[in-house]
């Protein structure tokens, strides 16, 4: 079987495994919606200023949580999945078969990307139905590009972080410990207009803020252009590339004991 077909086949098995664990599937799907509802309620669905006018808080959050969904599905889920598969010895066993490494990891990444897209659709549909949020039409290609670049880059970061997770007990702490603080300073959960400049500068070193900006621009109803943010996406892509290089250097198939 060709490598590509094997990778697609792995996507199917990843999906079947996920559906066999309904609690995990349910919470993966519901998690972003919980954030959307809670943040909109906590900060009030008032009008806030954006480039070119004012929109509802819900509009800001649909875009932000869409970006967060991709980060969560690709970075967090891939990192956990790979770290567990390594610790349980699944990766080691598969390494002894002719399945190419890239088809195995590619299957996991592709599955995560698809889950991320499903989550984005759920979040966008929820916002449209319950908050009357305008969804991008003219800027839809820009939104898809931002989501696609982000998916690939954050999945690569997930694999990179999995290589430094010592064992599955430590996986949640390491994986979330790296990402969660960044989500709070990257304009994803909390609008950062009034944050001190050093904090914004610090957050700009990392890819999350750039991902959030790229998605929000494409979701901004006042966007006059096509909504592309090449500089921000380039930074996200650079992080993804660096992560991929790191992972290809340090990836281990065997459990660390």
């Amino acid at each position: 079987m060709s490598g590509l077909r094997l990778a697609l086949r792995q996507v199917g098995y990843e999906n079947r495994s996920m559906r066999r664990n309904p609690a995990s599937a349910f919470f993966t799907a519901i998690f972003p919606l919980i954030f959307l509802v809670v943040f909109t309620a906590v900060f009030g669905n008032r009008e806030i200023p954006v480039e070119g006018g004012t929109t509802s808080m819900a509009t800001y959050y649909v875009a932000s949580i869409a970006a967060y969904s991709v980060i969560n599905a690709c970075y967090t889920n891939v990192a956990m999945n790979v770290a567990f598969a390594q610790d349980l010895g699944q990766l080691k066993r598969l390494r002894g078969t002719p399945l190419p490494a890239w088809a195995l990891l590619g299957g996991k990444v592709l599955h995560a990307v698809l889950i991320g897209l499903v989550l984005v659709v759920i979040v966008a549909a929820f916002g449209w139905v319950f908050y009357g949020v305008d969804l991008p039409t003219r800027t839809l290609p820009a939104a898809l590009l931002a989501l696609a670049v982000g998916s690939a880059a954050f999945a690569a970061m997930g694999i990179a972080v999995a290589t430094i997770v010592p064992n599955s007990d430590a996986a949640p702490a390491v994986v979330n410990g790296i990402m969660l603080p960044l989500t709070f300073i990257s304009d994803l959960f909390i609008p950062m207009q009034s944050a001190p400049e050093w904090l914004t500068t610090f957050a700009s070193l990392f890819p999350l803020r750039h991902m959030a900006i790229a998605v929000r621009t494409a979701f901004n109803p006042f966007e006059s252009g096509l909504g592309y943010e090449p500089m921000h996406l380039a930074i996200v892509a650079a992080w993804g590339l660096a992560a991929a290089l790191f992972a290809s250097r340090y990836f281990r198939w065997e459990p660390r004991r």
Partner: peptide, 23 residues
């Protein structure tokens, strides 16, 4: 391998089918 691989959500037949594709 000496160590058994634990914790799988797939069935026995699905696991074996998955591996048939590799060879």
């Amino acid at each position: 391998l000496q160590e058994t691989v634990a914790d799988q959500y797939l069935t026995v037949l699905e696991m074996v089918q998955m591996f048939t594709g590799y060879f």
